Amino acid sequence: MSTTSQGTCRHFVTYSGVKLPFKLVNELGDNELGNRNTYFRGYFDADGRLSGFDKLVYGEIELSHRYTYHDNGKLLRAEITDADEELTVLDFDEAGQPA
């Protein structure tokens, strides 16, 4: 686990759920990364919320999500960058529903 300008960084095998923000699951230790072709590098803010993640495939970022939250903890915005570096921005109301 390390701390970056984006927050605390931890690594995971995959994610669960279909609603944003995704939930990263099956945490990996730093010593387990060398044998993995694909994994997720998650960033967590001071409140422990997922502020974003990168999906790494053979060392290259294939997908990135960045999240910001309303003061009540509900998702405010998701910025998703795909493998072609296309950015999709999704906004959410204070109940966490798509705006």
Rank of each mutant, 00 (worst) to 15 (best):
M1V: 12
M1Y: 11
S5G: 09
S5N: 14
S5M: 10
Q6V: 04
G7Y: 02
G7S: 03
G7T: 05
T8A: 12
T8E: 09
T8S: 12
C9W: 01
C9S: 09
R10F: 08
H11P: 05
H11M: 04
H11E: 04
H11F: 15
V13W: 07
V13R: 05
V13L: 14
T14C: 04
S16V: 11
S16W: 07
G17V: 09
G17Y: 09
G17Q: 09
G17E: 04
V18G: 09
V18P: 01
V18Q: 03
V18L: 02
K19T: 11
L20I: 09
P21L: 03
F22Q: 04
F22N: 04
K23I: 15
V25W: 01
V25R: 00
V25H: 02
V25A: 04
N26T: 13
N26R: 12
N26V: 13
E27D: 07
E27V: 12
L28S: 08
L28C: 06
L28P: 04
G29C: 02
G29S: 11
D30C: 06
D30A: 15
N31Y: 14
E32L: 09
L33E: 06
G34Y: 05
G34C: 08
G34L: 05
N35A: 14
R36I: 13
R36F: 08
N37E: 09
N37I: 10
T38C: 05
F40I: 11
F40L: 07
F40W: 06
F40P: 01
R41W: 02
G42R: 07
G42K: 11
Y43R: 02
F44E: 01
G48N: 05
G48T: 08
L50P: 00
L50H: 01
L50K: 01
S51A: 13
G52N: 01
D54G: 04
D54I: 03
K55H: 08
L56S: 05
L56I: 15
V57A: 01
V57K: 00
V57Y: 02
Y58H: 13
G59L: 09
E60I: 12
I61T: 15
I61D: 04
E62A: 12
E62S: 14
R66Q: 04
H70T: 08
D71F: 11
N72E: 03
N72C: 12
G73V: 10
G73H: 07
G73R: 12
L75W: 01
L76A: 07
R77I: 00
A78F: 01
A78V: 02
A78N: 08
E79L: 02
E79D: 12
E79I: 05
I80A: 07
I80T: 15
I80E: 04
T81V: 12
T81P: 00
D82M: 11
D82R: 12
D82N: 14
A83N: 10
D84C: 02
D84G: 12
E85N: 13
E85A: 14
E86T: 13
L87M: 14
T88R: 06
L90R: 07
L90Q: 08
D91H: 14
D91S: 11
D91P: 05
F92V: 02
F92D: 02
D93T: 08
E94S: 08
A95Q: 13
G96H: 07
Q97K: 13
Q97N: 12
P98T: 13
P98H: 10
P98Y: 14
A99L: 10
